[in-house]
């Protein structure tokens, strides 16, 4: 059994190829973690049913409650699905596979990018399932093709923002359990926003936070695109928030990755 070494010849490297390989890897790992996927779809679906059938009657929003609450449920779901990126990243860092990748000259950007891309794929699957359930129980969006495109764009931007933020958080956490804490944070964020009840019905001291936190403009934009409510400047605010979060998170992730692997 001989093993001819590539004596002094460099192995060819391809950063784009590496990134694609990492995307395939992360998507495959996600697709085999069925429990996580089921939880991510079931939980928001249950919350949707809970709000629509249990609380819906008592909440006065001016439209059918399902129509009102769906964008919020979508955002809740995406936040939760994206947050799992943190767990994947922490596992890679703690279980030593990152050392193997680095010793093969695979960049941190390729590894993290793979996880974010996989998050986008998971989110797509979860969103489609949630929308199907919503339509089954009576959700009737008014959106035309242009509005749908806009909604998909908004969701994608939000997913990127949350996934990169989760990736950065995953680099901070030392255990997968710790990384899971990010999911809780993300799960709570939609509550003090216009996701489930109009902000005006909240106590006065919450208005400032609820109006100005990133989730509110994203939800208002989605609601406007899907069900025809006024959007105002929410679209710009949403785009600004998400782009800003992506920028901050990727820079943070780059710094943390360098620090973790020094």
């Amino acid at each position: 059994m001989s093993e001819p070494a590539l004596a002094e010849r460099d192995r060819p490297r391809s950063p784009t190829g590496d990134t694609l390989t990492m995307v395939r890897r992360s998507v495959r790992l996600s697709s085999r973690n069925l429990e996580a996927m089921l939880t991510s779809v079931m939980l928001p679906a249950m919350i949707m049913l809970l709000f629509v059938y249990l609380f819906g009657g008592a909440i006065e929003t001016g439209t059918a409650y399902l129509t009102y609450v769906l964008p919020g449920v979508l955002i809740l779901c995406m936040g939760f699905v994206s947050a799992q990126t943190a767990v994947s990243v922490t596992q890679d860092m703690e279980e030593g596979i990152i050392d193997r990748f680095r010793s093969m000259d695979v960049s941190g950007a390729a590894v993290l990018g793979g996880h974010v891309a996989a998050s986008a794929v998971r989110n797509t699957v979860a969103t489609v399932i949630l929308l199907l359930i919503a339509v089954l129980i009576g959700f009737r969006p008014t959106a035309g093709p242009v509005e749908w495109l806009g909604a998909i764009g908004t969701l994608l931007l939000f997913v990127l923002a949350m996934s990169w933020l989760a990736a950065a958080f995953g680099l901070l956490a030392r255990t997968p359990e710790g990384a899971n804490g990010f999911a809780f944070f993300v799960m709570f964020l939609p509550y003090p926003s216009s996701a489930f009840v109009p902000i005006e019905t909240m106590p006065g001291w919450l208005h400032g936070f609820a109006r100005n936190q990133p989730v509110t403009p994203v939800i208002e934009t989605l609601r406007g695109l899907l069900t025809g409510t006024p959007i105002g400047n929410s679209a710009w605010l949403a785009a600004g928030w998400c782009a800003g979060l992506v920028l901050v998170s990727t820079v943070l992730a780059a710094v943390l990755f360098r620090r973790r692997t020094a």
């Binding site: 590539l6 002094e8 460099d10 192995r11 490297r13 890897r25 495959r28 790992l29 085999r32 973690n33 279980e95 030593g96 596979i97 050392d99 193997r100 680095r102 010793s103 093969m104 000259d105």
Partner: peptide, 21 residues
């Protein structure tokens, strides 16, 4: 280091492979 990485391989103390693949 980038050129070194193209000529070496590392097998760490703990197996670094994906359990789900």
């Amino acid at each position: 280091r980038h050129r070194v990485r193209r000529r070496i391989s590392l097998t760490g103390q703990y197996a670094a492979i994906d359990g789900l693949q």
